[in-house]
Amino acid sequence: MQASSKKRLRPATAETEGQSTFRQGRLKGKYTHETESDPVEYEVLVQLKSEVLDPEGRAIQEVLKLQGVTGVTAVTVAKRYLVTLEAGCKNPDATIQDVAARYLANPVAQVFQVKQLFP
């Protein structure tokens, strides 16, 4: 892969803070950086299809009800993966879709959502 060009560093703002704690953690929480040749970080959420019983979500919902929390109509449990693709990856969006569809989720009973966190 091509060598990374000079990175433009900029301070994390209130807006970017919390969007990518994984990356900020590696940069000691001070800066985020963004160039075309930066690594690309994605969040992939995997959860059961709506028609498949989610016993963990149902149990949480039941306990909330027993605790007197009102108004909770559904709880769904999802698994969150953070995946970073190397700088210079030719088609990161297609790559992450492929990774999510073939490995992270099983389409028999699960669905997934991909969100780019960085840059």
Partner: peptide, 17 residues
């Protein structure tokens, strides 16, 4: 076998978790 798609379906967490 099911994750390999050699057999159909999927094996989920037990109902009791």
């Amino acid at each position: 076998l099911v994750e390999s798609k050699i057999l159909p379906g999927m094996l989920l967490h037990n109902l009791s978790q």
